[in-house]
Amino acid sequence: MTLSAYIEGIGLLGPGLTGWSGSQAMLTGQRPCQPDKTVLPSPALLPAAERRRSGAIVKLTLAVGLEAINAAGLNAADLACVFSASGGDGENCHAICEMLATDDRQISPTRFHNSVHNTAAGYWSIATGAMSSASVLCAFDASFGAGLLEALSQVVADDARVVMLACDTAYPEPLNSARPINDAFGIALVLSPVQSEQALAKISVSLTDARADLLEDATLESLRASIPAARGLPLLCAVAMRNDACMVLDYLGDTRLSVAITPC
């Protein structure tokens, strides 16, 4: 069974990758990727109180999601959302666990409501006014693939236009040693059931047990292998190359995703 959709907009933020449009030369191999630390913009759309309370995962989610939706010329409030992250707000989680290990366990209300996995989804809906459905997912290292399958299922089953956001941020120590993700990385894809003027490429996905493709650029391959959301980088490279392409993306252990890209 193959699930297909049209990619209408892309958002990208990561080490040395400042936006989809600004990263084309790196993704097509014309310029080497310099893995400078990811710069997260302040989320201007959020009310001041929420902006102060928002952590890295919220800033990352808003930045890549809005880039993809603006590129597609769409309104965020009109799109169903799929948020997939291998973890939540790592700094916040560390602060809570640290406090709960002391005699004074009075964690703050803001810390608590920012501890839920759907924190970024909540802030997203407040920032954009989107009252549409939001699927908030986690599949550890398979989170990119899980988000992609859920988003494609919505496109195919419900004929819906969907924005899929796969975002990961780092834990501080001591959790970072147990879960080493070293920087923030996010990909957003606007997916549509129909081919419109703004369509960039058609994407078709099925399950496979074939081996996953690696990236030629050592820096990009290192990102792909070390940050779950970056497991989708080969897909973005293929769209940037504007050629027909087939690849295998890592997903769950020996269950992987066979992806075909056809430029529009």
Binding site: V116, H117, N118, A121, S133, A134, S135, V136, L137, C138, A139, A142, A146, L149, E150, S153, L207, L252, G253, D254, T255
Partner: peptide, 20 residues
């Protein structure tokens, strides 16, 4: 060995699994 996922949207999580 098929698709597997956690839905984690606080207290709606295991209602939303039916939708997914």
């Amino acid at each position: 060995t098929g698709p597997a996922v956690v839905v984690s949207s606080a207290c709606s999580s295991s209602a939303k699994v039916f939708a997914s």
